[in-house]
Amino acid sequence: MRRNSPLVPYLFVLPLICLLAFVFGLSLIRLVEFSFKQVRGIDGPWIGLRNYELVLGQPLFWESVGHNLKLFLTIPIMVGIALALALLLYERLPGWRIHRTILFLPYILAIPIIAVVMKEMFQFSGPVNAVLTALTLDFMVLDWIGSADVALWTVMGLIVWRETALGVILFLSRLMALDESLIEAARLDGASWRQRAWFVLIPQMRGVIEFFVVISAITMLSAVFAYVYVIGGGRGGPGTATMVIELYIFNALIRTSLPGIAAAVSVMLFAVSLLLIWALFRVRRREEA
């Protein structure tokens, strides 16, 4: 085969594709198959689209979807904070290396550890409310994890705190790789810090910001289980206030013996995640063009 054949790049990735197909392919096929069956134990009769009908007709499913969508609100907040912190660190303020380590610390710690600690802190009789009371800020004392109106916001706060750390590191890495002569030129031209950030730095970080946004979107959709499991008392509570799609799947599979239902929701979640990844690639391709 000639070196400039269009097939060559595909041959390079072929071993990895084979490996992925072996590891995930079979599971995916089974997952899709299960979604069309009324599974008891490890198999069951074919019931066509009934599982999908049941799921899509259940208010709890849509409530879970709504909560996942609400979690998307954290993405612009995380991008904003991560960007601001990365730009500050890039200015190499005194002690910036220590600050960088401190900022990244939450991301290194396992989610359940953070969530358990936070759960203790945010209990109604916990330290957070005690401090607020001591500061005579009683109006801010809330039932952070026990109130159906507040619990999801508490989860969102925890997610922002932890996941922003990844954004900071990604953004800072990109900043470190930029051509400093451009920034120096802007500085010599009299550009303020805000102008340098807005007109010189951020435009060059567009790619990494997009990447972080898509990664965060996938996280909000399919990787928040540990947060809601711990904060929501393992149930998505209080009531169903912190129920998300992952927990819905977990409950269907483990707690209510409905593997077919769990499979149907997993297939839908997988499809939406694929759509997001496709969107990312499309945006990147358009930019490159």
Binding site: G146, S147, A148, R235, G237, P238, G239, T240, R255, T256
Partner: peptide, 22 residues
């Protein structure tokens, strides 16, 4: 109680009543 009822009714009702949501 079937598991589905336990998870989606038994527990949420009690929690929601106590937190004044129901």
């Amino acid at each position: 109680m079937p598991g589905q009822f336990y998870e989606q009714a038994a527990i949420p009702t009690g929690q929601n009543i106590i937190t004044a949501g129901m």
